[in-house]
């Protein structure tokens, strides 16, 4: 038996919104310690890794490991039927072909149950090595979203250059070019840890897709090292994270 109750549906809505543009279907791997997800987008350019620890939930029970293959569009439709302040319980028996989502209003006077058919998804799991990033930048998530949006109107590629002086985003296309530089401030809203300067080029479309996770967190962490994927990490309160990895563009 698997059963997990969240005090507010808003958190689940934000998580699904952060995933569903990049993944149409995905498997939630549920174990005693919590819920994990790992999946590549259809083009195998990026990878999403999510963790929700069991202490994120008001109630959590997972008798044996269970994988719940879900269509995220369908899940999103079900979540639209709920109010943000409803409590939500996700449950499934051990050998399930359906998952149940039960919503309870804040005053407990309304309950609503939905069943979603599970999908049997054959998902490849990759081992993500511990990486010592040469540059780690923590910045306001809203600022990162704004920069990604502004960059993608100029060019398909975004160059990110990070050094002790700051982090610089550049895009250059037919209509012209854009450069945005953020320096570390005494206010502490942009925090840079730089061992070695790094410059890498990425597909702006994917960066913009990652910023769907902005409502989850005030801050976003960006990790860069030469010749490895970019890390864009949004914490989920104190209970987990969504990490996006994006393969760099390389010289042809």
């Amino acid at each position: 038996m698997f059963e997990a109750r969240l005090g507010s549906t808003t958190l689940l809505k934000k998580i699904v919104d952060a995933l569903r543009e990049i993944l149409s279907q995905s498997t939630l791997d549920c174990s005693d310690s919590g819920i994990q997800l790992q999946a590549m987008d259809n083009s195998h350019v990026s990878l999403v890794s999510m963790l929700l620890q069991n202490d994120c939930f008001e109630k959590y029970r997972c008798d044996r490991n269970i994988s719940l293959g879900l269509d995220l569009k369908s899940l999103s439709k079900v979540l639209k039927c709920a109010s943000g302040d409803d409590a939500v319980t996700i449950s499934a028996p051990d050998k399930a072909d359906k998952v149940q989502l039960s919503f309870e209003s804040a005053g407990k006077e309304r309950t609503a149950d939905y069943e979603l058919r599970l999908l049997n998804l054959d998902q490849e799991h990759l081992g993500i090595p511990e990486t010592d990033y040469s540059c780690v930048v923590i910045m306001p998530a809203i600022e990162f979203a704004r920069i990604c949006r502004d960059m993608t109107s100029f060019s398909e590629s975004v160059v990110i250059a990070c050094s002790k002086d700051g982090i610089k985003f550049s895009a250059s296309g037919e209509m012209g070019s854009a450069n945005i530089k953020l320096s570390q401030t005494s206010k502490g809203d942009v925090d840079l840890t730089v061992e070695e300067p790094v410059t890498l080029s990425f597909a702006g479309r994917y960066l913009s897709t990652f910023t769907r996770a902005t409502p989850l967190s005030e801050k976003v962490k960006i990790g860069m090292a030469a010749d490895v994927p970019l890390l864009v990490e949004y914490p989920i309160e104190d209970y987990g994270y969504i990490r996006y990895y994006l393969a760099p563009k390389v010289d042809d």
Binding site: S46, G127, P229, D252
Partner: peptide, 14 residues
């Protein structure tokens, strides 16, 4: 000229 690399080429298959 740059080309997009594939994410799975950076991580090990489990």
């Amino acid at each position: 000229k740059t080309k997009q690399s594939n994410i799975s080429s950076f991580f090990t298959k489990k």
